[in-house]
Design a protein around this nucleic acid. Structure first.
Length: 437
DNA sequence: TCTGGGGTCCTAGGACCC
DNA sequence: TCTGGGGTCCTAGGACCC
């Protein structure tokens, strides 16, 4: 960095750091997207370095199975666990899916979101490790704290991803953001042993795509003028927000790349995708996105759900279902309390053995966070669903949230129990089916 | 032996009010 | 007897993301 004080024109928003540069430049919007490389697997490998190079799958979601696996090794010093003692996929039964897999396991065709049983078939020699969420969260907190120390404008996008506004951060303009990106990347590695990939671009949309260009441990810089060469050749699916359904529809319309999408007229896109989506697709293809980096946001809903070890029947497994239902309500109530919220919309989610899901919810005229109240209202929601098929999942959700501190006594006062919806009452009589509630 | 869990946002229809 | 809009809230489902 040049040490001389610049003599040229001063720009009010230029940070002190840039005043030291030989050539002051106008600030251009520089947004970074950072995501950790193979986060879950990398954290596990830090703990069990003896697994390096071996096929390992990290299982997720099924807490009971995971806890059992963790428990099996609870009393063994980690450094002394021989690889042979790790639980193996073969012989494991369960309904979990894989969160991630090491490269050696991926070679056998195993990949994230795959059912554990399918993974066991594809790669029977694989070692299964449960996800240690507490450990994952510790590392997640750690890398975000490191970023906040260097660049304070950070948007949390989940366990292993953030956006960072580089625009006014010292050094954030240098080499298009590369200098700052490298500093963050290096500091995270030094302090956690984990690598990450960073993309820096004029907005979140492009930064997100850029961070994928150079994985792992990469940095990619994208400028507005790089649109045609770096973005347009990509598949539409690379746009964050275009999922399998939208992609399939685009393909049916003969659009495969973002460049092909960029050639379409707005009106044509609106005709095919509706006002909102059409206009958004048009902007995205042109690389336009003015969403700000959001530092803090209020939750919209808080929920708990669980997939059963086996499909349960409303009548035959009534007691078990009832107990699970109550426990979910208690967990949601505890989550509300620990986060300091109350809510007035209570809902349930059911998934049947054919994987079809339904939801029911009911809005109260008061706010609550009370487990018993949740259980009662959720029970009324449940009565509105015909329960002929077996169930594989049950969930409880609270929405229309308000901070507990801001809730007045009147809003929290519990009036008479809510009544069953009128149209559902006749439905109920017409069916007169057995319920586990 | 298919397919976790915790979220957000959008759409669309109906109720209800003015 | 027939027929307006607009706005807001509620509900159900679905796409998508991490």
């Amino acid at each position: 960095m040049a040490g001389k004080t610049q003599a040229g024109p001063r720009y009010p928003c230029i940070h002190a750091f840039d005043h030291l540069s030989a050539m002051p430049q106008r600030l251009i919007r520089r947004i970074a997207h950072l995501d950790m490389d193979a986060f879950y697997a990398s954290v596990e490998l830090l703990r069990y370095p003896q697994l390096k190079g071996l096929p390992v799958v990290i299982g997720g979601g099924r807490r009971s199975a995971d806890d059992a696996l963790l428990q099996a090794h609870a009393d063994v010093p980690l450094s002394r666990i021989p690889v042979a003692d790790f639980p193996r996929l073969a012989g494991y039964t369960g309904r979990g899916v894989i969160t991630t897999a090491t490269y050696a396991a991926r070679q056998s065709g195993v990949g994230s979101a795959m059912g554990l049983m399918k993974a066991a078939k594809l790669c029977p020699e694989a070692i299964l490790l449960p996800v240690d969420f507490a450990e994952i969260r510790r590392y997640s907190r750690a890398f975000k704290d490191i970023i906040l120390d260097i660049a304070p404008l950070m948007e949390d996008r989940g366990i292993d991803e953030v956006y960072i506004d580089f625009t006014e951060v010292p050094g954030g303009q240098r080499d298009g953001g590369r200098v700052l990106a490298r500093l963050i990347q290096k500091t995270i590695f030094q302090q956690t042993g984990l690598t990450c990939s960073v993309g820096v671009a004029p907005n979140k949309l492009l930064a997100k795509m850029a961070s994928e260009f150079n994985k792992p441990n990469g940095i990619s810089i994208v400028f507005e003028e790089d649109l045609a060469t770096m973005i347009w050749p990509l598949a539409c699916r690379k746009i964050n927000g275009i999922g399998p359904k939208a992609d399939e529809k685009l393909q049916r319309l003969g659009i495969r790349t973002i460049g092909e999408l960029a050639q379409k007229e707005v009106d044509w896109l609106i005709d095919h995708f509706g006002q909102k989506t059409g206009a958004w697709l048009f902007d995205a293809a042109q690389g336009r996105d003015d969403r700000p980096v959001v530092l803090e946001s209020e939750p919209v809903s808080i929920s708990r759900e669980t997939t059963f070890e086996r499909d349960l029947h409303a009548v035959h497994d009534k007691a078990e279902l009832g107990a699970i239902f109550t426990r979910l309500c208690e967990q949601v109530a505890a989550d509300l309390a620990s986060k300091g919220y109350v809510g007035k919309t209570v809902g349930i989610k059911l998934r049947f053995d054919d994987f079809k899901s339904v939801t029911r919810d009911q809005t109260l005229d008061y706010f609550t966070g009370d487990a018993k109240t949740l259980r009662q209202v959720a029970g009324l929601c449940l009565k509105r669903v015909p329960l002929t098929k077996r169930l594989r999942l049950l969930g409880v959700r609270v929405a229309s949230l308000m901070r507990l501190q801001e809730a007045s006594d009147i809003e929290l006062k519990k009036p008479l129990p809510p009544s069953i919806h009128r149209e559902d009452a006749s439905n109920l009589i017409a069916h007169s089916r057995p319920l586990f509630d």
